[in-house]
Design a protein around this nucleic acid. Sequence first.
DNA 1: AGCCTAGTACGAACATGTTCGTGACGCACG
DNA 2: CGTGCGTCACGAACATGTTCGTACTAGGCT
Lengths: 233, 233
Amino acid sequence: MSSNTFPKVPISRRERPAKPALTRVGIVDAALMILAEEGLSKVTMRRIAAVLDTGAASLYVYVRNTEDLHAQVLDALLGEVKLPPVAGPWRSRLTDVLTSYTAVLFQYPALARMSMSTHPSGTNYLGLLNGVLGLLREGGIPDTDAAWGVDLLLSFATVTAVEHGHEDPLQADGDDFSALTEQLATVDAEVFPHIARLGNDLLSGTGEQRFRWGLDVLITGILHTQRTSSKEL
Amino acid sequence: MSSNTFPKVPISRRERPAKPALTRVGIVDAALMILAEEGLSKVTMRRIAAVLDTGAASLYVYVRNTEDLHAQVLDALLGEVKLPPVAGPWRSRLTDVLTSYTAVLFQYPALARMSMSTHPSGTNYLGLLNGVLGLLREGGIPDTDAAWGVDLLLSFATVTAVEHGHEDPLQADGDDFSALTEQLATVDAEVFPHIARLGNDLLSGTGEQRFRWGLDVLITGILHTQRTSSKEL
DNA sequence: AGCCTAGTACGAACATGTTCGTGACGCACG
DNA sequence: CGTGCGTCACGAACATGTTCGTACTAGGCT
């Protein structure tokens, strides 16, 4: 990950002096730089190519497409996720790790959205996966349940980030929220009685409260659901 | 919502004869037609505009952007979701409804992905929401829990569709799967012991099996988790 | 040493989303 | 009946992702 930013042969390509030769890592580095300075929406092929003083087409030798590139960027960011500390009850440590993961995703909901379709496979993601699996094992959850449960837990964290994350630079999202509120308030009680009855309860609570509750539901559910009991239908 | 597909004045606009005047509904109809015939990837602004014999820019009067358009299309498709039948135990009916919802989303994972960020608000989605809320009430779940739980359940269904859905026309996804398998097989057991230990168990089961198990976990978890017990921490 | 092949850099081209400015139309008002 | 204004259709323009064809470079083979 920190290896060949410095190629052995910095000879001039064509007539330009000291052009550092393209690399997958170099591309991701440039992307991270742009991300930090100008936000995700500016992390574009042409923008990166400009930084590396080349054309956009050149990047496609090292990067399959924009999604692939963003996946690399996400995994780099996942380096900030705090893996399970050694002390404390497993359940609260599990909550902590997933909260940390969500916090990272929260900064860039677009990346979270992307990681929904393109399953992450970077080193940092594997570390997270491994950590969560370890905590589940510590909690006495059978391996078979843990194997499926970890997917549930990580997906939930991702969904939370996608749904409640604040977009990059713009978006007043007060728009979104008030629109939803009004939508719910003006629902026809004849047609949708249950929605009308619950009303604003549907939107109650802070994002954090709902996240912790959801985590609680998932962990409790995993603890109480035997995978071998799939005999009904 | 089903009103003005037939404008009162079909007089010729400019010199062209009988151009039916743009409408939000008309645009969505055209989109649905293209979707059925050529797949979602061809449902583009310019393509729709071509069908309606106009320019892409004209559509933006009735549709905020592509996301908005796709949201409309999705809600139209959600008309196919089978709402709760009257008979049977609530839990199996709940599973049926969510399975039906997932089945629709499965056909167009891109739409599912989109509905992740842009919260749906169409009539058909509200009907689904209302139906699920009714079933949760029938199951004796407190309103406050149901209000948060329905979000969990629908999100889970969406995530399932996004993750395991087969893309539109292309994508052999055997690539994806074998890549993941190999990735997991070649993981360093020293660095990621838990991943190495579980190995292919992480990918075991069919999509349907995992979906049903996940649903079970969620429902069980909701039944066993009191929202008022947030006193820890 | 000379050539040849594979990989790579890159410009050009095409399709897409989105915005802007310019007109033209129709309805209401005088 | 005429006029004016707001709405809408539309072409043009710009930024983006992605692909294709072309050249150039390097390293190995004869």
